[in-house]
Design a protein around this nucleic acid. Structure first.
Lengths: 197, 197
DNA sequence: AAAGGTATACCGACCAGTGAGTGTACACAA
DNA sequence: TTGTGTACACTCACTGGTCGGTATACCTTT
């Protein structure tokens, strides 16, 4: 078996550097140094940089999902307000000076020329989880068009990640939150067949 | 004066390679070779790779804007249908095997660790232009909440770029287009103060 | 019109540094 | 004694960027 704590130190170092600088901008040497080991030891735990990148995203998967769930659970009001709260919390988080957008989206953008890359698989799975979770929240409220609505909200989510990062302006999250509220309300009063294409 | 045609050959080569592979994945040597010149000559026309990257995005600015304007102008129906047509055309374009998402967004994601990078400035300006143009289209229809609505639609636009690329699934453009239609309709029946935060 | 100067546009060769990934040896624990 | 985990030293291709030099064209000045 692996020495867990070393492996975790490596992934944590990778998370710090890859999120801050990007994938190709960070060398394996830099990750090893940040983790306080040699590169050769890193290659004992990971068979390639590509695998390390996938592990980096995997490392972010659960904490991310949990934050979303918490924000939603802690919010009061109707469904649209609780979904809106997710965007408000994101706007808050994006004010932190170390915030650099969504690691999953940034990585997938950087590796867009390698479709089957393990990190892209992890990233796509993460985003699907978010979408599915949103759909479950919506259908728990008795709405029938949950999947379509969840997709639309997810589009606003990822759109605000991209735009807030580009302009370094967290207020786009609030704009997106408002749009999400409108969509939820519209979905409640309109039959699903009109929302779908 | 510069020899225009050489400079243009360089930018065109940069466009081809940077869009296909990403910024850091493409060396200056590779661009020079694609342009059929030596690296030394490339550095005669551009003072650094960073400048070349900015020129690459600048090269995409106008054609992109024109496509959007054309799609909107050629579409029939009400405002929501003409805006929806943009998304439908994007869905169409994204089916092309060479489609790799939005070059502006991908570049800004890759260079997110260099906020003042000339290419990011160009990218942000391009996206602002799109947003402003959308707002002008909306207010031309006599709607008062044009800026807020344009922002929301732009969020859906960039969101679908990111998501369609991640999953390699152009259908997200159509989902986003449907959401945009809903937002336009809601904006017509609701006073602006309720749309804004 | 000849001579000289200057700016444009290009190239081959090179530099110091960095990239991902390896071969081998050594320490420790079961 | 066998397997796990770590380190040093290494390969070799490639990186952005630069040096010195050349061919051509145009613009003066005589």
């Amino acid at each position: 078996m692996d020495n867990i704590s070393t492996r975790e130190r490596i992934v944590s170092a990778a998370n710090k550097l890859f999120y801050r600088e990007g994938i190709r901008a960070v060398s394996v040497d830099a990750v090893a140094e940040e983790a306080g080991i040699t590169k050769r030891s890193l290659y004992y735990h990971f068979k390639s940089k590509d695998d390390l990148v996938a592990a980096y995203l995997d490392y972010r998967d659960l904490p991310n999902l949990k934050a979303f769930r918490r924000w939603f659970a802690d919010a009061a009001g109707r469904l649209e307000d609780r979904i809106g709260a997710i965007f408000d919390n994101l706007a808050e988080a994006a004010q932190h000076p170390k915030w650099k957008g969504c690691g999953f989206l940034r990585t997938s953008a950087e590796l867009a020329n390698m479709p089957g890359h393990p990190a892209i698989v992890v990233g796509a799975a993460h985003k699907k989880k978010i979408e599915d979770w949103l759909a479950s929240c919506i259908s728990a409220e008795g709405m029938e068009n949950a999947e379509a609505l969840a997709r639309q909200i997810r589009l606003l989510l990822d759109g605000s990640f991209a735009v807030a990062m580009l302009h370094r302006d967290p207020s786009y999250f609030r704009t997106a939150g408002e749009a999400a509220r409108v969509l939820v309300r519209a979905g409640r009063t309109t039959p699903a067949t009109e929302i779908l294409a």
